[in-house]
Amino acid sequence: MNDEGLRLGDTTFTNRLFTGTGKFASNEIIPEMLETSGSQMITVALRRIDMQSVTDNILQYIPDGVTLLPNTSGARTAEQAIRVARIAREAGCGKFIKIEVITDAKYLMPDNHETLRATETLAKDGFVVLPYVLPDLPLAKRLENAGAAAIMPLGAPIGTNRGLETKPLIAMLIENSAVPVIVDAGIGFPSQAAAAMEMGADAVLVNTAIATAEDPVAMGHAFSLAVQAGRAAYLAEAAGQSVVARASSPLTGFLD
């Protein structure tokens, strides 16, 4: 079965591995990692400059053709997230925005309430809004109604590499969302990325696991393969299910 790619806003992504720019030992690795992974979207963050030292310009490491996904990390309220989003767009980063509002410094859990508020405003503003949330089905429906382009549930807390701890909850989103579901955060190993794709996630976002690997370039490649395998498995399963669906008579109808 052919994969027609993942459409977000006006852009179609044929590679379903999204990556991040955080935690690399050296930013020089990023373009190489993007090449081996084939990732077509990568996150960046916005910060006040450090006036004591020279700040590296992260954007210079991201080749043309790779979509920038600025995040609103650091925001603790909807208003702060909205401000960061607008600054990023003004600065030429395009219309994509990952809303990340975190008020909990211990577990770094996203604040679903503030995220919903920011989504409502930014979607109206014309952003392609990708809210990073705890997987919560009613919230996902609200985000959808508010105009979110996708839902980005966490698999496990940021940077923990614990994988799909929230699997059953993500499964509910996948089953019920009208918009794509992109698993973000917690994915520490390619097998976990494959599992997420196999269960029907539309994409995964992996940063820490690639950036902090001994060889991030090779690990980017590994994740890319895992995502492809998981996606292919999901599509293969879907083909099987459609056979059942086509047999429209119920299994126990013969008893009537």
């Binding site: 059942v244 119920p250 299994l251 126990t252 109808g253 008893l255």
Partner: peptide, 10 residues
């Protein structure tokens, strides 16, 4: 609930 059970059994 036979139909539902049948789906799982299948």
């Amino acid at each position: 609930h036979l139909e539902m059970i049948a789906k799982v059994a299948q």
